[in-house]
Amino acid sequence: MVGSDIGIDLGTASILVYIKGKGVVLKEPSVVAFDRDTNKIKAIGEEARLMLGRTPGNIVAVRPLRQGVISDYTVTEKMIKHFIQKALGKKSFRKPLVSVCVPSGVTEVEKKAVEDATFAAGARDVKIIEEPIAAAIGAGIDISKPCGNMIVDIGGGTSDIAVISLGGSVVSTSIKIAGDDFDEAIVRYMRKKHNLLIGERTAEDIKIKIGTCYPLPQPETIEVRGRNLVTGLPRTITVSSEETEEALREATLQIVEAVHSVLEKTPPELAADVADRGIVLTGGGSLLRGLEELIEEKTGINTMTAEQPMTCVAIGTGKYVEFLAGKRDEEF
């Protein structure tokens, strides 16, 4: 049966499923809503995301993956099962071969947890890949050549930075500063500067619409609704893109510093390749405006974002299975 090889990008913010020959067939937020009283799952994915911060007492909407690591095992297992079934349809009799990607800094125990959850969700075999390698394959870089490529993959919970050569990462680091932290920084800033309490989803909206980490030629504004902490009543204020730059400064500079530290540890030959070929940004967090300019200004290296940064890792995870299959064919 064709198409039973699956690649899963198990992200903190969203889960993408890639099927061999079909491409990315599913992209849903990694949120699960379940009823506390009966312990039954109410909704998974987009449906559950809409419930975040809006649920009554007995229903909880949670993200079972925090910073790229499984924080709630049983819920994650059910979620993976749901997505595998949804992607393959009910017709598949043969269990799929699943490759899953994890952040580059995870421990053996955390890797094992992902592997066990995927087996329990009905996989025939599980391959674990490191995120930067999957991102590089998905961005269309030929990783098997002996030359250095630098990938900065900014997801929801973690940012992975690696220099890749000959199919493996030479120097890599994973920091727990990413898209979610951008949202939190905006929430904190609004509370401190405007005495306004806003939710995660509103913060994300601000980030997507006017968020920037480098001064824009033309400042933009957006109306934000939240709760005034002084009066306790709902209130609307106008926020400018300049303010988001101030709010996000600390988080984005930590990413730039991580890029810097990886470059410091890179062997000179590969560093020369990176200076020549540039830095490639992938992941949803790389869509934040001004990141390219910021990294370029601080490192002096040409920086570009991959064509479809959101789906790079998922495509790479799926292609990795084909990459391995190619190797298997050569062996026999």
Rank of each mutant, 00 (worst) to 15 (best):
S165M: 10
S165D: 05
G140H: 13
G167N: 12
I151E: 00
I154P: 01
A162C: 08
I161S: 04
P146G: 02
S144D: 10
S159G: 05
K145C: 00
G138T: 15
I141L: 15
I161V: 15
A139F: 09
I143Y: 06
L166V: 04
G156H: 08
G148Q: 03
G156C: 10
S159V: 06
G167I: 12
I164P: 02
I141N: 10
N149T: 06
S159N: 05
G168E: 12
T158D: 09
I164N: 07
S159C: 14
G138Y: 15
N149M: 09
S144R: 08
M150S: 04
A139N: 11
I141K: 09
A139C: 14
V152I: 14
I164L: 14
S165E: 13
G156E: 08
I151H: 00
V170R: 10
I161W: 02
S159F: 09
S159I: 07
G148W: 04
V170Q: 07
I161Y: 05
D142H: 06
L166Y: 01
P146E: 01
V152C: 08
D160M: 08
T158E: 09
N149H: 15
G157C: 14
G138M: 15
K145R: 11
C147M: 11
V163C: 05
A162F: 05
V171F: 04
V170K: 12
I161E: 02
P146T: 00
D142A: 12
G148H: 03
G156D: 10
G156V: 09
I141V: 15
G168Y: 08
G148Y: 03
G157Y: 09
G168V: 13
A162T: 09
D142I: 14
A139S: 15
I161N: 03
G168R: 13
I161Q: 02
S159T: 15
V152Q: 06
A139Q: 10
I141G: 10
S165N: 08
G140F: 13
V170L: 11
V170P: 00
G168T: 14
K145F: 01
A139I: 03
G167K: 12
V171A: 03
I141M: 14
K145L: 14
D153W: 12
V170C: 01
G140L: 13
V170D: 03
G168A: 12
G156M: 06
G148L: 06
M150G: 02
G138I: 13
G155W: 01
M150C: 04
K145P: 00
S159W: 07
I161R: 02
V163N: 03
G157L: 13
N149Y: 15
G168N: 09
G168M: 09
